[in-house]
Design a protein around this nucleic acid. Structure first.
Length: 331
DNA sequence: GGTTCAATAT
DNA sequence: AATATTGAAC
């Protein structure tokens, strides 16, 4: 089915370029690829927006701003801290320049004029970030079920330069090098909150499996979130499918996500924000409520899921206070 | 006997 | 409204 399209269609992309006319061009192209687009013509104004919308910006495309190198600023101030994939674009770039940006965490370096084909595929960097962090080397369940026909190009194999870049300290609690939550079990709440990021990981797992194979247990295995139970995944899957049924009554569409059918922004306005996009930090473990903490049951549960503690991050119980600002997930 | 799904409970 | 739990079906 079209779960994959559903996932990448609503991604929010922020474009920064001091050339306003080119900004419009980019916006137009991105909208045609059914992304949501926000534009800024300078970094000074864009930065606060980014910081205030860390959960909602999926990808940043910024001009290199040579020679001021504001592009590098974004990479260092935002991408390396918060893990938002950033693509740099420039009208020209020699190898050493490209290398420098990539080494500083750029997910890609595009030469202007950027073609729509490149943009239609740009979502892969969001996807990459999502599946790479939790897969250091051979941590992934070995062979996935043979990639379904539409499986994403190169999943999980190589880590991007971004991950190699030096992590900057973040004063936020329980955030690790890649800007992911690593431990939060002290936050008490009786129910799991499917944060945007947790949902993303869920979607990534579903996509990886393919709709037919996407059943709770397999999804759980791929998500590799400690303490997350199959039942919770099942529950969420149930809701997710319900949503799909509601928002996409027609199942057949042209496979091409680009060019032929320029989708307007309103196309996905009928869908919920939550299932379309939203993003936050990577989550890999989640804590059990109350009683399990002190008792030995916790370890038992970990083993149940057959996850080793390492390589897993922590996933938190929903809390009113999110590190990176409020969420909106109205269905 | 374990897993999934739909319904129902909180 | 969102998540958890239940119970029948597979």
């Amino acid at each position: 089915m079209d779960l994959q399209e559903l996932w990448c269609c609503g991604l929010s992309i922020l474009v920064i370029d001091n050339n306003c006319s080119y900004l419009s061009v980019m916006e137009d192209l991105l909208l045609k690829c059914s992304y949501k687009v926000t534009t800024y013509n300078n970094v000074r104004e864009a930065m606060p927006f980014i910081l205030n919308n860390l959960q909602r910006v999926d990808l940043i495309i910024s001009d290199v701003f040579f020679p001021t190198e504001d592009g590098l600023l974004i990479l260092q101030e935002v991408t390396s801290k918060f893990g938002i994939p950033t693509v740099i674009m420039a009208s020209r770039g020699d190898t050493s320049t490209v290398m420098r940006y990539v080494a500083n965490g750029a997910s890609d370096f595009l030469l202007k004029p950027v073609r729509i084909q490149e943009l239609s595929n740009i979502w892969q960097h969001v996807f990459r970030k999502q599946i790479a962090p939790s897969t250091p080397a051979g941590n992934l369940e070995q062979p996935y079920p043979p990639p379904t026909a539409m499986a994403p190009s190169t999943p999980a194999t190589s880590r991007t330069a971004a991950e190699a870049s030096a992590p900057l300290e973040s004063e936020m609690r329980d955030i690790d090098n890649n800007g992911e939550i690593t431990d939060i079990r002290d936050l008490k709440k009786s129910r799991l909150s499917w944060t945007a990021q947790l949902h993303r990981q869920f979607i990534a797992a579903v996509n990886l499996l393919g709709d037919d194979k996407a059943v709770p247990k397999k999804i759980l295995g791929i998500m590799k979130v400690k303490h997350l139970t199959r039942e919770q995944v099942a529950s969420h899957l149930q809701k997710y499918r319900m949503h799909l049924k509601k928002s996409i009554p027609t199942t057949s569409r042209d496979g091409a996500t680009l060019s032929s059918t320029p989708l307007k922004t309103q196309d996905h306005s009928s869908r919920s924000e939550y299932f379309d996009q939203e993003g936050c930090m990577e989550i890999t473990e989640y804590s059990l409520p109350k009683d399990y903490l002190s008792s030995g049951s916790e370890c038992m549960l970990e083993e149940q899921n057959d996850y080793s503690s390492e390589g897993l991050q922590d996933f938190r119980w929903g809390s009113d206070k999110q590190e990176y600002g409020p969420f909106f997930w109205n269905f």
